[in-house]
């Protein structure tokens, strides 16, 4: 799952060196639009809808991975 996240984040933002602990704002310097752009890519990749209210709970990459797993996604679709 981490490798897939790394791939999506790189494709959307050009940022690399992504780990479980990478913080989207503090480490990657992403702004709100960048984050929504990544979320849209996650939705496309995993064929789910992510409510905007949930987006702001996903501070780090590991939060996004845990969120996907809670939504029943544990492997690349």
């Amino acid at each position: 799952m981490l490798e897939l996240m790394q791939k999506i984040i790189f494709q959307v933002t050009g940022k690399s060196d992504i780990t479980y602990d990478t913080d989207f704002i503090q480490d990657l310097a992403l702004n709100s639009f960048d984050i929504m752009n990544i979320i849209s890519a996650f939705e496309d990749q995993f064929d789910i809808s992510i409510p905007t209210r949930d987006v702001w709970k996903l501070h780090q990459v590991k939060d996004a991975i845990a969120y996907m797993r809670n939504r029943g996604i544990d492997s690349p679709s």
Binding site: S32, M36, P51, T52, R53, V55, W56
Partner: peptide, 12 residues
């Protein structure tokens, strides 16, 4: 949404 303080939410 920065002016109002509501931020980006489901009503965006």
């Amino acid at each position: 949404v920065k002016l109002t303080g509501r931020g980006i939410d489901d009503d965006f």
